[in-house]
């Protein structure tokens, strides 16, 4: 009984999570071998997978997710580091933190509408750029591939840079001030101290934060759903939106499940390799 006790404590949570991950996983695998629309399931073997590997829209969705995700993540990381570097020993750091937090605390669906109005429906961004004299005519952000992607990236950077900022500031603040002082007495500049001492020390924290953000970026859905619906020409369709569209717009559930299964395999690999390592060393 005593040896079982810790297992009993953790069992309810594990069972709950198994019900919500293992069961859907098995269900998706089983469904992915069937043709499922409205009628009964028809066994089709590997057909869905063969079709998927030949589906240009699927590869495009993967590619879009990768391109938009990596640009957004790089920008957020660089900006958050820059801001954290300037803020963490500032006397007003608490004030900065509260201000920078604001975008993060709006519902993502509302933020998506905010940028949709600013870029497209309300033409605010075009108007402002025209007033400054940068452009001569309205820009149709939604009909250019790079610009449509840019609007999604900007919305994500605006809302989620604070996530990384807050974590980086906390990590920097928790570092020993005496090391910095000693280095400064030796004549090292702020920038040199940050680059050579503070940054290497916070590497595990950066890893954890970037992984968490990276996961959320690659699962981006609400912004695509509200701002672009994948247009123009599927160039902003993320993998999450692809699965949603195939499943719930064309009702081709078996096919969508095949895509889910491939994503699941990818997730497990990423989780095993990256996440395990980051969270093991991440106990700062």
């Amino acid at each position: 009984m005593r040896r079982l006790f810790p297992y009993l404590l953790v069992a309810p949570a594990v069972l709950y999570l198994l019900a919500i991950t293992l069961y859907p996983g098995i269900f998706a695998i089983w469904q992915s071998f069937h043709f499922v629309k409205f009628g009964p399931w028809q066994w089709t073997g590997w057909d869905n997978y063969q079709q998927l590997f030949a589906d240009r829209e699927f590869w495009a969705a993967l590619w879009n997710t990768l391109v938009m995700g990596s640009i957004a993540l790089t920008l957020q990381c660089a900006l958050a580091l820059l801001l954290a570097y300037h803020a963490y020993r500032d006397p007003f750091v608490r004030g900065w933190r509260i201000i920078f937090l604001v975008p993060m605390l709006f519902m993502p669906s509302a933020v998506a509408f905010l940028w949709k109005l600013a870029f497209n429906d309300g033409r605010i961004v075009s108007d402002l750029l025209m007033r400054v004299g940068l452009i001569d005519a309205n820009i149709a952000f939604q009909s250019s591939i790079p610009l449509a992607r840019m609007t999604l990236i900007l919305a994500d950077v605006w809302q989620w840079t604070p996530f990384l900022f807050i974590i980086f500031v906390a990590a920097l603040q928790s570092q020993d001030e005496e090391i910095e002082e000693a280095a400064r007495l030796d004549g090292a500049s702020w920038a040199a101290i940050f680059w050579n001492i503070s940054l290497p020390l916070m590497r595990p924290v950066i890893a954890v934060a970037v992984i968490l953000r990276g996961i959320d970026i690659t699962t981006m859905f609400a912004n695509v759903f509200i701002m672009t619906k994948g247009t123009p020409g599927g160039s902003t369709e993320t993998i999450s939106y692809f699965i949603y569209r195939i499943g719930f717009k064309t009702f081709n559930f078996g096919y969508a499940s095949a895509a889910s299964v491939l994503m699941l395999i990818l997730t497990i690999i990423v989780a095993q390799v990256l996440v395990k390592r980051a969270f093991r060393s991440g106990r700062v």
Partner: peptide, 10 residues
Amino acid sequence: MMAPAIVAIP
């Protein structure tokens, strides 16, 4: 780490 879209259909 699981994307919501992966389990959405099941």
